[in-house]
Amino acid sequence: MAMAKKAPASEPEQTEGQVTRRRMLNWLSSVGLFGSAIVSVFSNLVFIKPRATYGQPNRFSIGKPEDFPSGTRITLSEQNICVVREGEKLCAISTVCTHLGCIVSTSETGFACPCHGSRYDQDGNVTGGPAPKALPWYKVTLAPNGELEVDKGEEIPPGTYFNA
């Protein structure tokens, strides 16, 4: 009985809209092939994304508070930060231009970027040029060994000073 039912189903005009075995297998193998192609492209992307980087650590020590007497405004070129101290207030401002990553230089009015002419005031607020936002301030803490520690992973609102 089962054989008799199967035979007419294989005729083309009766399979319109139905899923035949052939169509099902075509569909499954296409999904399998394209699926594995997509998965392999994706795994290549995973491969080229490094899990660990060899660059600078985010947290680093910059020295004792006494190294930065009041009135200091010094750029640490290796860490790309500018350490500012006025009285007891101390802060670390990034010197990486928020526009396209050039290193800003200190000018009389604050910071200026040589690449595309962005300008910032003493606190890192944008005063001109294409920079979209102010220079970030990084969190400064006192490590147990008495040295100041800057954490580039943690941005703090401008105007938040560390009390030395």
Binding site: S77, E78, I103, S105, P114, H116, G117, P130, P132
Partner: peptide, 28 residues
Amino acid sequence: IAHPPNPAKAPWYFLGLQEMVSYSAFWG
């Protein structure tokens, strides 16, 4: 790595792009 040349210019064929990004990084 501390001091970009001033001005820091790309080769000529990218200077049009650099001119545009000097107005807006996203749009240019």
